[in-house]
Amino acid sequence: MLVFAISDKGGTGRSVTGTNIVYRHALQGNDVCYLDFDFGSPTAGAIFSVSAVARGTRENGLHHYLRGECPQPRRVDVWAESDREGLRARPPGAGRLVLLPGSEGGGELSALTDEVVGRCVQLLGRLDEEFDLCVVDVSAGRSFTAELVLAATVRMPAIPFRWLVFHRWTRQHIIAADGLVTGADGLLDVGTRFGHDPEDLRDRIRFVRTAVLEPDAAELVGLRDEQRAWLSACDSELRELAGRHGVGRTAMLGKIPLDPVLQWREQLITDEDVLASKIANAETAAAFDDLAKKIVDDSAWEGL
């Protein structure tokens, strides 16, 4: 299963949610890998706490590979190479957790050639042979990278793939997320141009809401009644807006609650963060765990 993670804007928590999903999926006993295709700022290494590739790798990064500069991209075994003590030992029953870092200072792809698409097809095909789940961080907005994976997946009709569109729970983000999928030069538009069936592609896209503050959340206990009423009104307004833009409940795969840890530092939320040091909320870890299950659960992906 290939999963492409994209967001309408930067700062939506796409990378931190994507990495936490693969981490949870590995803990659930699957072999997983994470590909940092965010060529503008490859920072997945930092989230996995692998300092050697915190800002990408100098040699054999994904960017080098796609440009044909190395035969295979570098692989980082997170269980072996993470600097974080809680990650350095593979928990019993967990699967492999592999990061393919981007190239340090690689820059965005400047053009989409047949060779680049061919290399992408080869890479994704090989990874699909050995990993249960490959999450590809496609970066924010419309980019050559998004076009690259749309072009590549047309050439691999037998390999299952899905798209996750991350957005925050605000007016602008809801409208932009819809635009990224259905707007001009959006995913459906470009995908159809490359030869995808628009209906089929639409069924492979789901939305994930990030940094969501529920009106009944524990964090809001100290608020005045007027503030709470205002928030609740905003929330129902947003729900109505989301429904109109096709970003509503039916098209949503999951939502990640606002968590102070993720606001301050992009990192994996381990069970230790929840149970021992108690810096993270149990709801956040549960939301990641739930998403990691739903991502491969066909019943959550039935046609809209």
Binding site: D31, P71, Q72, Q122, G125, R126, D128, E129, E130, F131, D132, A158, I159
Partner: peptide
């Protein structure tokens, strides 16, 4: 790199359904 490419050629054959019963590295 050459051998890997030839193995890719087999694995990408349209006669295969790509639904292997389990994931396993080469």
């Amino acid at each position: 790199a050459v051998s890997g490419r030839f193995l890719d050629l087999v694995q990408a054959s349209p006669l295969l359904d790509r639904r292997a019963p389990f994931k396993i590295p080469r």
